[in-house]
Simulated scan of single mutants.
Amino acid sequence: MKEKITKASILLFEEKGFSETSIQDIVEALGVTKGTFYYYFNSKEQLLMEIHLDYISDLLNRQQTILESSNLSNRKKLEGIISLLIHDIQDKGPSGRVFFREMRHLIEENVKSIEKQRDLFRLHIEQLITDGIATGEFRKDLRADIAAFGVLGIVNYSYNWFNPMGEISANELSELFSSMLLEGIVPR
């Protein structure tokens, strides 16, 4: 039941926003009582925090799998992370939109906890770029910190507009972003 409450809440938060969604809305969507909700969650904010933790923890675990792939070059790892993020929008779009849009509704202590996890994801990309610079895979004049922000800025913003059922697939978008980020948009 906890998973059903979470899934229904994600859809409601995506559609109506966290502030406009009441616990009553959540329980009505499931045909259960408020007591059922409170059996699993102390508050709507606690539910939102768990949604955030689940989302970022899952991303970090999948990112770590890519980073630990010793048979992949730094470039291929970066392409893998770009693909991971785009496919995540395809597979978990509502969760991603809630993650990015609704964090402002968490209490400050919880925001700091989530920001640490988000920073860790970014720092892994920064280290990957630093490693790629050291091996000559990436340009020596790059600032790894700014490049990492750039990668995340381009890719993460896609949750606002990317429609996996639209004219471009997640694979095509991942390849386009990888090519654009790694080779630029100016013809050689």
Rank of each mutant, 00 (worst) to 15 (best):
G80P: 13
F149V: 15
E108H: 09
R75W: 00
E167S: 14
D25V: 11
L181Y: 09
K112A: 09
E137V: 08
L11R: 15
F177E: 09
M1F: 08
L120H: 11
P94E: 10
G31A: 01
Q63R: 05
D58H: 04
E175K: 13
D131F: 02
G153K: 07
L84R: 14
L123I: 12
E109Q: 05
S43N: 09
I23H: 03
R62D: 10
F138P: 07
L47Q: 07
T21M: 09
E20M: 08
A170I: 06
M49F: 10
D25T: 13
S113V: 05
I114G: 04
S69N: 15
D54E: 15
E172V: 02
L173C: 06
G150L: 02
A8V: 09
A170R: 13
K112Q: 13
G17S: 06
A8N: 04
E183D: 12
E45D: 02
D119R: 14
T6D: 01
Q90A: 15
Q46Y: 01
K140C: 00
T36S: 08
L128A: 04
G35P: 12
S22P: 02
L60H: 06
M1G: 14
I5P: 08
L60V: 10
R104V: 15
P94Q: 11
L120N: 09
V27I: 08
T6P: 10
D91I: 06
I89D: 02
R104F: 00
I125C: 02
L12T: 04
I86W: 09
N42W: 00
D58W: 02
N110F: 01
F13I: 14
G150V: 01
P187R: 12
N156M: 15
D141V: 09
L128R: 06
G166W: 02
A148N: 11
L30Q: 03
I10Y: 08
L120A: 12
K92I: 01
D141C: 07
S70A: 12
S174W: 05
L72I: 01
F41G: 04
L176H: 11
R62F: 00
L85E: 14
I107P: 08
L152V: 03
D54K: 15
E175P: 00
D91A: 12
I89S: 03
S179G: 12
L78D: 04
I66W: 03
